[in-house]
Every structure is written in structure tokens, then in C-alpha cells.
Design a binder for these strands. Structure first.
Lengths: 232, 232
DNA sequence: CGACGATTTGAATAGGATCAATGGGAGTGG
DNA sequence: CCACTCCCATTGATCCTATTCAAATCGTCG
């Protein structure tokens, strides 16, 4: 596999400042594979053999305990997952499955750790990426502990709306079932939460959502940059 | 401030492999201060001026949104907090206050970032620490999403019991109010959860807890290393 | 001793989960 | 092209958990 195949990967914050030869070496040993939907990629408890990078499609991170299962996160292109387990040479804390047909780059953990030792710029980039992931989970945790289900949904809808141009209409990027689990609720409860938001100008038609009164939604949702901003 | 004052800090994973001169340089510019209980140290949204290291006492990390407040974590000696914000030169996502009279080491963010650039061993240690923090939050998030309140309490009691020797009796390291918030419940609900656990051999006397039937507790709690283990 | 805050208990409520049943596409096979 | 099937989503009813509000109790610190 050659670097020229993957300008998008090279452009990732994680790799953009890396020395050419180190990046090429990583790509030499990497696999680029396409997987069908709903395929299990990794299971929590497995040793971290690879770093995963979603190039196309999308991946659901989830976890189980007792008989329960919950979506922990959703990774879209171009994003990495389970970086921390790779760096610690530890077992995965989360499982992952494809949500759609997905093209995924797999880089052996060992090579990531070697590159980290040899390339100071890469080490710096890893810290930035890791710190971002950390802050992402903290935000997710605040979201869950400080907001009701309806508030979480409202803020999520505003985020998607914004991501997709903010022109009043957008598509849900996932199953409602998956969205519900990601927001920490049941599918039934998500359905009811949509009804609760109807008076605030939320119109649902399949996976198409229209927001006819964004002001009203923002009054209800009270978005908070320290929870909702993807950057910083 | 001299390094000899703080062998415990030097022994922290974060600093143990650092070059002597770099460690000394950091300690030159660090402040070691003692704070009374319930003192606000930092507020979410502030720029990250310092890395904090709890040397004695304990610190509560918490967050607010809308009118609500929730405990996000509890830091005991010797532990650091808000490393990610320091490394990203971003604003804090959490506030912090002392839970008890505490001795705290403050290292200016700028110096941490400089040391990170200059000392490859330190950079490596930072990545390990950051990855550990990340995995800690993921575990906390799984705990909250996959367990009921009673299960969370049971597992937390087992952890404290283990930390303090596992001889059947231990002390709660924090207010019940704080413990409740850390576990994602109200103080009233925590009190009721203790009652629910009484048939499983949990005896409460102020902040002293006795476990008279650990087997029974473990059957109920179903501890999971991918949630409860502090290491890995 | 008195006051205050923390904890516990009780009662009522709200929010979510579960169980059950129905409606609605998308995809399959005839 | 149409009928069939399956899975997802929605709705209704009920149950359960957890929150809220209120009050009593306990302990600690001046």
C-alpha cells in the first residue's frame, strides 16, 4: 500500500506532521480493507493488535456488561479508534462493528509504537489526538450526567443540523436504534423524545429531520460549548 | 522548591523516567501550596495555566450545566488532573475544588509543554498517563451506561474494600453526598441503595462500612475488569 | 447547649424501561 | 410487478427506578 493511495489519511492530524519515511513505513505494513455492514471488527478484552482508521463508511463502538449493551461512540471518516489501547499495549475496552459498508485502514500496533519512539513530531501529534479523544469522552460523560434524555436529543439534533449546513433540514447519520443507544436511551424513549420536541419545531420523516424553529430548540437545548463543541 | 522535597512526585509514572535536569527545571517553577477544604481551584472554561498534582488530601472534579452539577471524579495522592487541557493549551472542561485540606503542586502549563518537547522520555510518560486517564473515563462511562445505581454502588464498595486491605471493613474516602454524585445519583437514592444492599451483608455506620458477605456482594455486583480495574 | 449541615426516611411524582401489539418500508422471491 | 417477510419504528399500557419535596434525626463544631 502506498501513501499516494491515501491522501486523506496523510492529511489526518495524527499523520500530517510525520516524516515522510516514517509515514511510508507505516503504510507499508498497513492493510486497507473493505468490510460489509454489521461486521464485528474487534471485541472488548482482545489485545490491541491494530490501530483502526475509518476511511469510508462508519463504525460503531459499543460495550457490553452483564446482559446489557450500549453504544459508546460512532466513528466517521476520517477518524481513528482505540488509540489508547494501542499505545498502552493493553486490551480493548470497547468492541467495534461496521455500521455501513466501510473501508478501513489497519496499522499494526507494534509499528505505531515504534514510529512513536522514532518520530518526535508523530509523538506530539499522538498526544494531541489522544488529548482530543480524552476530552471527547469527558464531554460525552458530562452530557449524560448533566442532561435529561430530551435535552441530549435536542443538542444532538442541533449538532447534526450544524454539521450538515444548518439550512433547516438534515439526515440522521445512523439508525434510530443506534442513535438511541448512543444517547443513553431506549428506541421507544427516543421515539417519545422526538414527539416531545415536536412543539419546538422538530419534524421527523424517516431519517430526515426538519428544524422549523431553531431558536426555540436552542432555548430548550441550551447548548454548552464545553459539552457540544467538537473542537477545543 | 527542590526536587528533594518531593520524592513522591518524582516517583510518579509521569516524572520517574524524566531527565534529572528537566525535572529540576520543572520544580524550579512549580508552586507547592496547601489549601483549605472546599476551596475552588479551577473553573471549567478557564484557560489551563497549570498542571495540578495532588500531593496530600483530595480533590473533587465536577462540572455544571444548566442549573445542575455533578461530580466527575475524585483525585487522591499522588495523582494529576487536567493534563489534557494543559497539553492542548485549551480551557478546562471540569472545575475542581479541594475536598479536604490539601497540599497541591502547581506546574505552569507552558513549562510542561516545553519539557514535553525537550525530553523524549517525558513525552513517552505523558502519553502513557494520558492514555490511562482516557481509559479511566471510558470505564466510568461504561459504568454509568451499563449498570443500575445499586450495581454501581456495590462495585464501588468492593473497590474501596479491596483498596483498603479487603479485611471486611473500610472507610468511605468521601462524603456520602459526593459519593452519590460521583456514582450518578442523589444522596437520597444512595441512602436507599445502601438499604437495598443490606441483605447482601453491607453494614453502614457513618462512614465505616462492613462487608459481611463478600461472595454475595460479588454475585450481585458482577465486577468486570474492563470497568473496575484501575490498572491496564 | 445550640445551631448548622449532613444523612436518613417518607410520600408523591416524574422519567424511563419493559412488554406487547401495530404500522411501515426495504428487500426477496415468485 | 406484486406478494411476502422481516426488521425497524411507533404507540399504548404498565411497571419500576430515581428524583423531588418535606420532615425528622443524627453528629459535629462553635
Amino acid at each position: 500500500m502506498r501513501a499516494s493511495d491515501l491522501p486523506e489519511v496523510r492529511a489526518l492530524g495524527l499523520f500530517s506532521s510525520m516524516e515522510e519515511k516514517h509515514f511510508d513505513a507505516l503504510m507499508e505494513v498497513a492493510y486497507l480493507q473493505t468490510f460489509p455492514p454489521q461486521l464485528d471488527l474487534i471485541a472488548e478484552g482482545d489485545v490491541a493488535d491494530f490501530l483502526y482508521i475509518v476511511v469510508e463508511g462508519s463504525v460503531e463502538l459499543f460495550a457490553r456488561s452483564n446482559g446489557r449493551e450500549s453504544t459508546m461512540g460512532l466513528v466517521r471518516p476520517v477518524g481513528t479508534f482505540i488509540l489508547a489501547a494501542v499505545l498502552k499495549d493493553a486490551v480493548y475496552l470497547m468492541s467495534a462493528r461496521t455500521a455501513q459498508r466501510s473501508k478501513i485502514l489497519l496499522i499494526p500496533s507494534q509499528n505505531i509504537r515504534e514510529a512513536f519512539q522514532q518520530d518526535a513530531e508523530f509523538a506530539r501529534a499522538i498526544v494531541q489526538e489522544l488529548a482530543s479523544c480524552y476530552r471527547g469522552v469527558v464531554k460525552e460523560h458530562k452530557n449524560l450526567k448533566l442532561r435529561t434524555a430530551v435535552e441530549r436529543l435536542a443538542n444532538r439534533l442541533l449538532r447534526y443540523h450544524n454539521d450538515q449546513g444548518g439550512n433547516g433540514s438534515f439526515e440522521l447519520p445512523h439508525d434510530k436504534r443506534t442513535l438511541a443507544s448512543a444517547l443513553g436511551m431506549t428506541p421507544e424513549n427516543l421515539s417519545r423524545a422526538f414527539n416531545t420536541l415536536k412543539p419546538y419545531g422538530v419534524e421527523v420523516e424517516g431519517s430526515t429531520i426538519r428544524l422549523t424553529d431553531v431558536n426555540s430548540m436552542e432555548t430548550l437545548a441550551k447548548p454548552n460549548p464545553l459539552i457540544d463543541d467538537r473542537k477545543t
